Amino acid sequence: MGKVCTGASTSIDGYVSGPDFSGFDRLFRWYESGDVAYTMPTGAMTVHLTPASAAHFDGLIRATGALVVGRKLYDHTNAWGGRHPMGAHTVVLTHRPLEDTEHFTFCGDGIEKAVEIARSHAGDKAVGLNSGEVARQAIDAGLVDEIWLDLVPVLLGGGTPFFAPGQGYQLEGPLSVVEGVEVTHLRYKVHYAEAG
């Protein structure tokens, strides 16, 4: 069984989006900071990365067998046109499930069930969780093995934070550090506090 991982492009002050779901142009500027054309597995988009970021990004995509995302992201992207650009089966955690499709499963039974469904699709590969509420619920439930951060040198000053304060876990590492242009890719192991 593969790991459960979450990650995001994050501002220096810890936000994965700015106020009113803004700031993505600044958080993802590194997607166009290099000369290596990298096309997503579905062919839905091509980004231009530095060699270091391209190798990191490709490794992440190849290691991921399924995803869990929230309904807000699913709606905001208009379901990515019918399939997530990574090409992985995607479980949508929502209180308003839709009918399952070839590429999407809708789960209204909580984060544990959503991760269980994603694991059944991922096989030996990792399950990737989108940041924000989905990641926080999974961390609170003790389900996350690693956190991957694409640390971007911008300040958003508010919005949606990646980390919630006062949680019962610590980060160990970094396990890896990859320096790109306008981004540093960091990977940490999640260590949960012992109960009692």
Rank of each mutant, 00 (worst) to 15 (best):
C5A: 13
C5I: 15
T10I: 11
T10K: 01
T10D: 01
V16F: 02
G18P: 06
G18Q: 08
D20E: 14
F21G: 09
G23M: 09
R26F: 02
R26V: 02
L27T: 11
F28I: 07
R29I: 04
R29V: 07
Y31C: 09
E32C: 00
P41V: 12
T42G: 04
T42N: 06
G43P: 00
A44Y: 00
M45K: 00
M45R: 03
H48D: 00
L49S: 09
P51F: 03
A54K: 14
G59S: 13
L60C: 13
R62H: 15
V69A: 13
Y74H: 15
W80H: 08
R83V: 13
M86W: 14
V91T: 10
L98I: 13
L98P: 15
F104H: 14
T105Y: 11
C107K: 06
G108K: 09
D109M: 09
D109F: 04
G110A: 02
G110D: 03
I111Q: 01
A122E: 05
G123M: 08
D124A: 15
D124T: 14
K125H: 15
R136F: 01
R136G: 02
Q137G: 01
A138E: 03
E146N: 04
I147R: 02
L149M: 10
D150T: 10
L151F: 04
L155F: 05
L156Y: 03
G158F: 08
G158E: 12
G159I: 12
F162E: 05
F163H: 07
P165Y: 02
G166E: 07
Y169G: 04
L171F: 07
E172P: 13
G173M: 06
V178M: 09
E179N: 14
V183G: 11
H185Q: 13
Y188D: 10
V190G: 04
H191V: 15
A193F: 05
E194N: 01
E194I: 07
